[in-house]
Amino acid sequence: MTVSASELREPAPSRGLTLPSARRLLLWTGLAVLLAWVLVPIYFVALGAFGGRLGVFRWPKSIWPTDLSLAPMLQFLAIEGVFNALINSLIAAGSTVLLSVALGAPAGYALARYTFPGQNVYRLLVLLTRAFPLAILALPLTVSFIRMGLYDTPFGVSLIHTVLALPFAVLVTQSLFMGIPREYEEAAWVFGCTRFQAFLKVVLPLALPGLAATAIFAFVISWNEVFAASILTVRERTLTAYLLKILSESPLHYRFAGGFILILPSVLFIFAIRKYLFAVWGIASK
């Protein structure tokens, strides 16, 4: 950087949002580095996943996509157990979505609409569940799950994933419901609705985009989670847990294909719900 210090120390002229050019350069450089940090590895994983065996081992590497095909991906999906694990992952993630929305949204609604003693403590406790290390719980959980017949089932895995997803579901839906004026509900009550009808007819339609985001969030948490899934299953592994087991002994281009399938949902999800995430973190979004 050849920007002189005196130039940086100069106060920004009050011309709306335009920054002095030196600062703008710094800002964009920073942004570019950050973006590259995140996107370049994903790009190379994608390249490896669709380039096949030859693409992976070619040297010198080309950074431009050449002879891409879906074949390696299809081959990967045809490996024994991958398809079954994929189904298990979908069941686990689906149940996690249902449970965390069904349990999290009412809690978020209560936090948004009512004041009750211990509200702030409750809000903190909800988050603290994430601070409790899962590793400590692993053994007792396994024992209890075996006793209850939940061991080695996608549903059992989804219960643990719900515990992980619930704090976010509660906090996201809370800010969501806080954004819907109480007056809408009151108007619905006055015009003949019970509380529940008012929720269904007025609050729910308005909350739907945010609830969808919450659902996807829960989906991705379950999809990406590997520790609990590995411990609580033996044969009925979720995709993540299964890949962890088999990829270490697979050829490189399979690893890329597996990696890519794991990355994809998260990337799509974060893009879809970025607005609501910012709302939760108190950053105004445009």
């Binding site: 004026p181 007056e183 809408y184 009151e186 108007a187 009550w189 019970t194 007025v202």
Partner: peptide, 20 residues
């Protein structure tokens, strides 16, 4: 009685017209 059983209608300060 709850609001719906009181046989009245109300106009709110912020309109409360359902946006959807």
């Amino acid at each position: 009685l709850p609001p719906r059983k009181r046989g009245l209608a109300m106009v709110f300060q912020n309109y409360a017209v359902f946006p959807h």
